[in-house]
């Protein structure tokens, strides 16, 4: 299937083995007029993530790790396929998070071959094919994988056991480290990139060479098309149950859809959040890009499960630290950047 939308994070749908990508406004017009799009075939990259994930490490950490490894422009011009045992072991929600952030390393989009996890997720859902039509579609879907000797323009191999809970310290998603790591010292950065690097740290109010763990945060945002699915909310609820947020922190939980919101209420997740001092809000893009009223005030630090930490993204002069829902939830409780592994 091919899917487009005037939103770069359309790549999320690649989790289902679709070619899905964001387009510009003039292209939106082209598709409305013709149901077709003029496109050059991108180069193809495969990223293999093999091995087991450590406790407290989730799909968001995988993708933040990959982007930190290859940089925010490391996949420019490519369409990425994610493969390997660590990817296969993820739920559909986890796969969506991975594909969602493909574009944060410059890729046109990202995709994962459909398998039993995909088929089980789709079966019986509204809009899914039924009866004989399901069987026909399923037979076709089972042909959607890269053949054994298929050629990729580039392949990258990642060892899942090297991945820690991740956090970003800078102003692009590639500026991330493991939670026990440190913000690179100036001399660890390529000389010609040092001015931009120091400018980013100045915007963030952070010191080169410093540890990121222990940094005080003001806001926690759990939401966006990257991490606002029911699984994310369940994960956060299971961790915060019986805990209370730090006094100085404002916590916004924004479900990704009405369906997720209703499911969360049905499961009593809203009560868990309320008891912890979190606010469960109504669905929308919200503080991911601050196009509505949900803006982070200037100078404040927000640990956010969204996808971009650009200058001003969450509000003028707001400072964004990207992390997984678990790491964000840990910060909500302690009031600072925390290694979730010490709390679970």
């Amino acid at each position: 299937m091919t899917i487009v939308c005037g939103d770069s994070h359309t790549s999320t749908h690649g989790a289902f083995g679709a070619i899905a990508f964001g387009i510009g406004t003039s292209e939106v017009e082209m598709v409305m007029a013709t149901q077709c799009l003029l496109q050059s075939k991108p180069r193809l990259m495969r990223i293999n993530v093999e091995g087991d994930l450590h406790k407290g490490v989730v799909s968001k950490d995988i993708i933040l790790y990959i982007i930190a490894q290859i940089s925010a422009s490391g996949a420019t011009g490519y369409f990425v396929e994610y493969a390997g045992s660590a990817i296969r072991s993820l739920s559909m929600e986890g796969r969506m998070t991975i594909c969602n952030m493909s574009i944060e390393m410059g890729a046109r989009g990202g995709m994962i071959a459909p398998d039993e996890t995909t088929f089980n997720y789709l079966k019986g859902r509204p809009f899914a094919p039924q009866g004989a039509e399901w069987d026909k579609k399923l037979a076709y879907w089972k042909t959607l994988y890269s053949d054994k000797d298929a050629r990729f323009d580039k392949e990258i191999n990642i060892d899942a056991s090297n991945i820690e809970p991740m956090i970003t310290y800078g102003t692009n998603p590639g500026m991330g480290v493991g939670i026990t790591g440190h913000i690179p010292a100036q001399n660890e950065i390529d000389e010609k990139e040092q001015p931009a690097y120091m400018k980013a740290l100045s915007y963030m109010g952070l010191q080169a060479g410093a540890s990121i763990k222990g940094k005080k945060v003001d806001y926690v945002f759990i939401g966006s098309c990257t991490n606002s699915r029911i699984e994310d909310l369940r994960l956060v609820a299971s961790f915060v149950k019986g805990r209370k947020k730090a006094d100085h922190v404002e916590v916004w939980i924004v479900p990704g859809s009405k369906q997720v919101e209703q499911q969360a209420i049905k499961e009593g997740i809203d009560k868990v959040f309320e008891a912890a001092g979190f606010h469960l809000r109504q669905p929308g893009c919200s503080a991911c890009l601050g196009m509505n009223e949900d803006k982070i005030p200037a100078g404040k630090y927000c640990i956010s499960t969204s996808n971009r930490n650009f200058e001003g993204r969450q509000g003028p002069n707001a400072r964004t630290l990207l992390a997984s829902p678990l790491t964000a939830a840990a910060a909500a409780i302690t009031g600072e950047v925390t290694d979730i592994r010490e709390l679970i």
Binding site: T2, I3, C5, G6, D7, V28, V31, L37, L38, Q39
Partner: peptide, 16 residues
């Protein structure tokens, strides 16, 4: 480039 058929087009209030 190629002319690619699009199966599903999602639109929203900002870029449409």
């Amino acid at each position: 480039p190629s002319v690619l058929y699009i199966d599903k087009h999602l639109i929203h209030e900002v870029t449409s």
